[in-house]
Design a protein around this nucleic acid. Structure first.
Lengths: 192, 192
DNA sequence: TGTTACCTTCCTACTAGTAGGTAGATTTTA
DNA sequence: TAAAATCTACCTACTAGTAGGAAGGTAACA
């Protein structure tokens, strides 16, 4: 029998889905309270302030993302398959509406008014994602799998921008298929 | 002497910059009130509800955007220069921090919790921007200026996603130069 | 063994402040 | 003078956050 999720993890789960739907200012302790059947004050017991809650949430997200990406690099052999797997992850999330948006991409838009402790963590996620993508592109280029027109770092930035922009478009047009339509063309240019 | 902006236009100006900074839930009537030295109730006189205010704001933005884009097509001869001008517009906005983000891109992220009257207008803006870009790419391809790997519509979607993703990246990394760095590579692939 | 102390978790009840919005009087302007 | 714009004063609902306590478990100890 699987160990049940702790209350604080349930709080983070709900908060994350609420942020993905409406951003930092788009949810309240009352929303979480209603969603998991616990009083507002009890949430404050686990996370004294909203800024702290979201900071912990981003830390957790970063940890999961980095674990996922690094296990991808160790378990999947070829760089182009690593890249495909990364993109397939988001495509699946968007299609089944489980996590139709990267929580850090959402928060990045609100950067200017985010508490410092949150903003710095969001920046850190983007940094490490860009680094991972650059490493994958670089390895792929060395093996002759990718044809890069720019440095791996620049291509990684472009790809990251496309992925997040494609998420935005898929949401704007309410069309999950749009994500992979936009991204697959992008990838085709790299692998051709 | 230039005609002074009316109160309602001042309200829209401030509201737009506040939305660009923090989204739909990131500003209040009190913020506008403080910014232009008018009471909250007076803002309600011009815009009874927040949803209406933002709907009018998006209508105005769409009007300005469509006017700008169509005058670009009539005043600038070549499609590649039309595209360059469009991208240069955003690059300038981001560099001088005047409008460092497209208000519709911002709102698109919050789509799920936007009032219908706002959401439909945001969608309409994305639709008409995609149409404009597709037309420019198509004309450029006919003149041998662009080398398209996909249909003009698909390439337009990709480009639009890249532009909005690049805005997000520039904001996340707090690096205005990142926008053009990401986009110029994208363009290079089209025009090569 | 029983008791005392402590800890975690959750609760009810509350605070000060802010949200969007309204009623009605007053001023400004055409 | 009539209409438009702004004001003061207020409302209800909600915001993040706090105070203080109840229930239950664990650990120390006499």
């Amino acid at each position: 029998m699987k160990s049940m999720a702790s209350t604080s993890e349930k709080i983070l789960d709900i908060a994350q889905s609420l942020i993905v739907a409406g951003g930092y200012n788009g949810f309240s302790y009352a929303d979480i309270s209603a969603a998991i059947g616990i009083r507002k004050a009890s949430i404050h017991h686990h996370f004294p302030t909203k800024a702290e809650l979201v900071a912990v949430l981003v830390d957790r997200y970063r940890g999961q993302a980095e674990a996922g990406l690094s296990s991808l690099r160790s378990q999947v052999a070829s760089p182009d398959e690593q890249l495909q797997a990364y993109l397939r992850y988001w495509d699946t999330c968007i299609r089944d509406a489980s996590q139709p948006f990267c929580v850090c991409a959402m928060l990045a838009g609100e950067m200017q008014m985010l508490p410092d402790e949150v903003a710095s963590r969001v920046r850190a996620h983007f940094q490490s994602l860009a680094t991972w993508l650059a490493a994958v592109l670089s390895a792929g280029a060395e093996q002759g799998l990718f044809r890069l027109n720019r440095s791996p770092e620049e291509e990684a930035q472009m790809l990251m921008a496309s992925v997040h922009g494609a998420m935005l478009s898929a949401r704007a047009f309410d069309d999950p298929g749009l994500f992979i339509a936009i991204i697959s063309s992008q990838i085709a240019k790299l692998t051709k």
